[in-house]
């Protein structure tokens, strides 16, 4: 069985990431957006992906929520899964201390019942393995479709405030409210037309982009969820 995580990519290596970066660089060369001073989402994502690779180690928290939705914003009304993980990524190794798990892109081990075993040996480990992809892997996958990217906190397109937030938490994107704190802690005011300006008058760059994935990849995500066993039949 070919395992595909939320990132959709079957595995991660420096070579693979390099290939993804090279392919994207070829397909969508970094260019400024129409506005001139606003970079294109593709260019910004490429830069961010490279910077993340250079960072070496970082902390990542993953929230997984899945189930039944009945609304256009895809908020959940019935949960099949609600999981959160706190991990530390160091290059190509993921450590999830609370679950005593070490994981690479292709395999992982978990300590339970007194032994180190394959992460696939029990249900919780299997779910972690299915759900928790390396963020750089997810970004590499997103990069493949970066040409469909658009800023959702600048200009014409504005994300619904609760898009995908199952519990109504609307803290996701800067620029959703008229006056709010950005992630940097700086107060950001969104003016008419979606231009974000800080209180000192300096214009802020957009920070949240949305990238559509093709149907085929969406199906791979569904299969990954199905294989995790969280739906009861995996």
């Amino acid at each position: 069985m070919k395992r595909i995580g939320p990132g959709g990519a079957p595995g991660l290596s420096a070579a693979m990431l390099s290939l993804a970066l090279a392919a994207t660089a070829g397909a969508a060369p970094p260019q400024p957006g129409k506005d001139g001073d606003i970079p294109s989402p593709a260019a910004k994502l490429l830069e961010a992906t490279k910077n993340l690779a250079k960072a070496g180690g970082y902390r990542t928290q993953l929230e997984v929520q899945g189930g039944l939705s009945k609304t256009p914003d895809h908020a959940l009304v019935q949960f099949a899964v609600r999981q959160s993980y706190d991990g530390q990524v160091y290059r190509e190794l993921l450590h999830v201390p609370a679950m005593k798990t070490f994981k690479t892109a292709k395999k992982g081990v978990r300590y339970f019942e007194g032994y180190w075993r394959s992460v696939l040996a029990d249900r919780d480990g299997k779910m972690l393995n299915s759900f928790f992809s390396f963020p750089q892997q997810v970004l590499a996958q997103a990069l493949r479709h970066a040409k469909t990217g658009e800023w959702i906190d600048a200009g014409g397109v504005v994300a619904p405030a609760t898009d995908g937030d199952a519990d109504g938490d609307s803290s996701s994107a800067a620029g959703e409210n008229d006056d709010e704190k950005g992630a940097s802690g700086k107060t950001v005011v969104v003016g008419e037309g979606g231009d974000a300006t800080s209180t000192d008058g300096a214009r802020s760059l957009p920070r949240v982009m949305r990238i559509e994935a093709p149907t085929r990849e969406a199906l791979q995500h569904y299969i990954a969820v199905e294989n995790s066993g969280c739906l009861g039949g995996g």
């Binding site: 070496g56 902390r59 928290q61 929230e63 039944l68 959940l76 190794l93 997810v138 569904y222």
Partner: peptide
């Protein structure tokens, strides 16, 4: 809209460059 299955995977990243190589136990 209508009934559909939705899965949200949200990663939050922080402490860039501050995480050191974890010590993997020998048995692991």
């Amino acid at each position: 809209g209508g009934e559909h299955a939705a899965f949200h995977f949200e990663y939050r990243l922080s402490d860039f460059g501050k995480v050191e190589k974890p010590e993997v136990p020998h048995e692991a």
